[in-house]
């Protein structure tokens, strides 16, 4: 086989199959996500409608109860809600996806892949994250129109900060996915953790130094500063950005290791793919 396969052929004259790289793996996983999204939009639309319904309750209900106090802090609430919808999507993507793959009988084929199970699961998580970004962006736009609020939406600042912030949650999702492989029907319990994200997203308000090491907390603070205060990416201190990257990398690596350990244990116990 040549490096790119060009010109090579099998004995029967058919072109020699070429190896797929990680780029092609990512493209295949993203394309599948896109196909499912455009062909069966009901799930995605349902999620958007539910998210907007609860935001509507929060906004209109809160305005009736708290009046001006809520209106004054609406920008922060919108940024927090946007980040929460992103986080929920990132977190649940891997564990829910693995649960579905087990039911469909497709999990085993992802385990045997020459890419390795964990890299494929990561690619699928990233694909779900891209989709979640699109739906959360739509939710953000509707929230801004609904409340008549304006925010600073400098893409070169908002996208990297939001992405790095939810990568830490992706790490938690990875760990949850590993636990799902081991213990199967724990998805609903793990989904309860999503409500803990509300606390983490509001952690900057607690002004606790160590809270910055928690997932979401530091990124949430930076996102508030950029979207509400208009701070640009290059205006943040190196320490802030390093902490953002470090927390993201730390939780992703930790989650990845938990996932690996859990799947190894599932193989020892013989429960991988059981449902």
């Amino acid at each position: 086989m040549t490096a790119d396969g060009a010109g090579a052929a099998t004995a029967d004259g058919a072109p020699e199959p070429r190896r797929a790289g990680y780029l092609q793996l990512m493209r295949a996983v993203l394309y599948r996500e896109y196909l499912v999204f455009v062909r069966y939009p009901a799930n995605a639309v349902g999620g958007v409608v539910v998210a907007l319904f609860f935001f509507g309750l929060l906004f209109y209900g809160g305005r009736m109860v708290a009046g001006r106090a809520l209106t004054d802090s609406i920008e922060g609430i919108i940024v927090g809600y946007f980040l929460w919808t992103l986080s929920v999507g990132a977190y649940s993507s891997i564990s829910n996806d693995i649960g579905s793959e087990v039911q469909w009988g497709t999990l085993e084929r992802h385990v045997m892949t020459p890419f390795g199970f964990a890299p494929v699961a990561l690619a699928k998580g990233v694909a779900k994250l891209v989709r979640t970004f699109l739906t959360s962006a739509f939710i953000l736009a509707v929230m801004l129109v609904m409340t008549g609020t304006t925010l600073s939406l400098h893409l070169l600042t908002v996208v990297p900060i939001a992405a790095l912030t939810v990568v830490s949650v992706l790490g938690l999702g990875f760990a949850a996915g590993g636990i799902t492989v081991l213990y199967k029907r724990v998805g609903n319990w793990l989904n309860l953790l999503q409500f803990g994200f509300i606390v983490l997203i509001s952690a900057p308000a607690l002004d606790l130094g160590w809270a910055r090491l928690l997932p979401l907390a530091h990124g949430s603070a930076l996102l508030q500063r950029s979207m509400v205060g208009g701070t640009r990416l290059w205006e943040f201190s190196v320490l802030d950005l390093a902490l953002l990257v470090g927390v993201a990398a730390g939780y992703l690596a930790g989650g990845y290791l938990v996932f690996q350990a859990a799947t190894r244990r599932a193989r020892r116990l013989g429960v991988l793919g059981d449902y």
């Binding site: 020699e16 199959p17 070429r18 797929a20 092609q24 992802h110 892949t113 890419f115």
Partner: peptide, 16 residues
């Protein structure tokens, strides 16, 4: 999709 997951570029096995 499953050709790719198996580590093979799908275009190269389209005829197959």
């Amino acid at each position: 999709y499953f050709a790719t997951i198996s580590g093979v570029a799908p275009d190269s096995v389209a005829a197959r």
